[in-house]
């Protein structure tokens, strides 16, 4: 793990809220890698999920705003009914273009734009979910030599999404949720020591 990572993207769908709690809750307050998340949600939902996650986690979690500069130590969640894109100048963009993989926000849209922006310094994480959104994005992250992580399908609430990603590309780590959190913390503290 000699490489220095600059950002983490996470995609999840059915069963995602519980999975996100298990990954985000263990992260310490000084966890400085920005995390950008797409969770499939109904277009009518309010920002309950963001508020809930922010209330139970130590790190700062907020809904993504357009043109927002991605800052270390923040977690950004795609708003309902908007795609979340990452610009190559590391700001966030929103779009309400047509659904991708029947989803808006779509994980592929986030992951692909993140891969272009961060290249090999990106970590992509795919979690529980019922369709194959995110697998094209994971493939691009891998092609850019980023790190790919999938939730172990055996431990997923719904296994289609991690299975689709594992089928689509090389996944560097296939782990249960607790171990994913541990791995992210390990990567982060390894990078901090080197500074």
């Amino acid at each position: 793990m000699s490489k220095k990572y600059k950002a983490i993207v996470i995609g999840t769908s059915a069963g995602g809220l519980e999975a996100l709690v298990k990954i985000l809750m263990p992260l310490p307050k000084d966890f400085s890698l920005p995390i950008i998340i797409v969770q499939h949600i109904s277009p009518d939902s309010d920002n309950y999920m963001t508020q809930y996650l922010n209330s139970v986690c130590d790190i700062n979690i907020k809904e993504a705003d357009e043109k927002e500069k991605i800052k270390a130590g923040n977690v950004y969640i795609a708003p309902p009914n908007y795609h979340l894109l990452i610009e190559e100048n590391f700001t966030l963009s929103l779009s309400n273009q047509e659904k991708v993989n029947f989803s808006r926000p779509s994980i592929d849209v986030l992951f692909e734009t993140a891969a272009y922006a961060y290249g090999s310094t990106l970590i992509g994480v795919i979690l529980t979910g019922a369709n194959n959104d995110g697998s094209k994005g994971m493939k691009l992250i891998h092609n850019f030599n980023g790190l790919t992580i999938a939730q172990d399908p055996k431990t997923a609430y719904v296994d289609n999404m991690p299975l689709a990603a594992i089928k689509a590309t090389k996944i560097d780590y296939i782990l249960p949720l607790e171990k994913i959190a541990e791995l992210l913390i390990k990567i982060h503290s390894g990078q901090k020591k080197k500074k």
């Binding site: 894109l85 610009e87 734009t113 922006a117």
Partner: peptide
Amino acid sequence: YSKAHIKR
């Protein structure tokens, strides 16, 4: 325009 959008 937003570059990420146009690129997609």
